[in-house]
Design a protein around this nucleic acid. Structure first.
Lengths: 194, 194
DNA sequence: ATAACCATTTAACATTTGTTAAATAATGAA
DNA sequence: TTCATTATTTAACAAATGTTAAATGGTTAT
């Protein structure tokens, strides 16, 4: 039932681990679908992040408050996992906020259910490790790009890698993601066009 | 025997998981100690990273070649794990190089041995996941600091957090780590003193 | 349709960081 | 020690990005 709703998440996890049906079923019994409208919040500031989301549709952003301003650290690509990890792993209130940039459909799993999966099926723990490893590698790539590239190069890379994201996500979030101000991004876009 | 040689690594892993003696023994049988002189290389460019190191003593750096220059992306804190993760997880040749900034003592475990530990003892897989999670969180903190902080603030933070590192690591590596040029770091150090 | 709001651009000027080139300081090898 | 090498600093100028303020464009709610 509704197997197509799991198409993307199955495709994602199959990159890492081959599951038996019973292992998949265990997951299917504990996940939940939710819809978020644009600007709705998935993880609130001060809340303990006790769940993780897979973005079946739409874009989330991870941000926090800094001198009264919102700083967007991350925009989730389509079909990937997101949570406020510092809170999720430490079980302390989250300083990070996660909200929907566009209307979203999320597949949610609670931390307690995830830990049960980890306990019951070593392969799920393996998947958890593999996914985090990939996210870590991507995070390091981004650090390289902050060290070696200009903002313009970072923008062009984003444009190539996630053309759809640039179309759907307001530039102020893109600018934060690139580590520059909105006005600087605008200037740099003008230079690219000409 | 030589239990004190494992003091730091035990302290590190005890933060995450409580092991039984047999689980620890399994690890003790497969690890190896090596000494590196300053500038000796732990992972070469083009090599497949098939091992991971815990820095029992000394500082490693992770760098890669970019337009003929060495770009240092990371300096390992004391008593932490390091490998060229993209190569380690993909088993492809490493573009990252890891070498010793100072004389180092490393505790090494081969990837195959680590995977055997993962297979044999779910708690080891759990530890692997937990450690990566922490590294990922730290990596995200660093991205925040690239987005919101000036180079001077990043330098001051490093100074507070790892005063010993600043003393032992040449400034050119620190500058790369902060994402600025050596001369800019020097200028900024002058401003701080006055 | 209109008004209010949000997104994006533009521009002038300020600040930070990069670039180039050199001088000085510190370190290690012969 | 002395020489050679590496590390660090300095300075003048260039380039990139930030800041402030405003104009323009687009979207949404009523």
């Amino acid at each position: 039932m509704h197997k197509d709703k799991f198409k993307h998440v199955f495709h994602f996890i199959n990159q890492f681990v081959d599951f038996e049906q019973k292992e998949l079923d265990a997951m299917l019994h504990v996940v939940e679908f939710i819809q978020l409208k644009r600007n709705e919040i998935f993880i609130h500031e001060g809340e303990i992040a006790d769940k993780i989301a897979f973005t079946n549709r739409g874009y989330l952003r991870v941000y926090y408050h800094h001198n009264g301003e919102e700083i967007t650290r991350d925009i989730t690509p389509l079909h990937s996992f997101a949570t406020a990890l510092p809170s999720f792993v430490s079980e302390k209130p989250s300083f990070e906020i996660i909200s929907a940039i566009t209307d979203c459909e999320l597949i949610i799993i609670k931390k307690t259910d995830l830990e049960n999966l980890y306990q019951s099926f070593p392969k799920w723990e393996r998947l958890g490790r593999r996914i985090i490893e990939e996210m870590f590698v991507e995070s390091q790539r981004r650090i390289y790009s902050f060290i070696t590239e200009t903002a313009e190069t970072r923008y062009n890379r984003l444009l190539r890698q996630y053309p759809d994201m640039i179309r759907q996500v307001p530039l102020k979030y893109i600018a934060d993601f690139l580590g520059i101000k909105l006005q600087s991004l605008s200037r740099l876009r003008k230079n690219i066009k000409s």
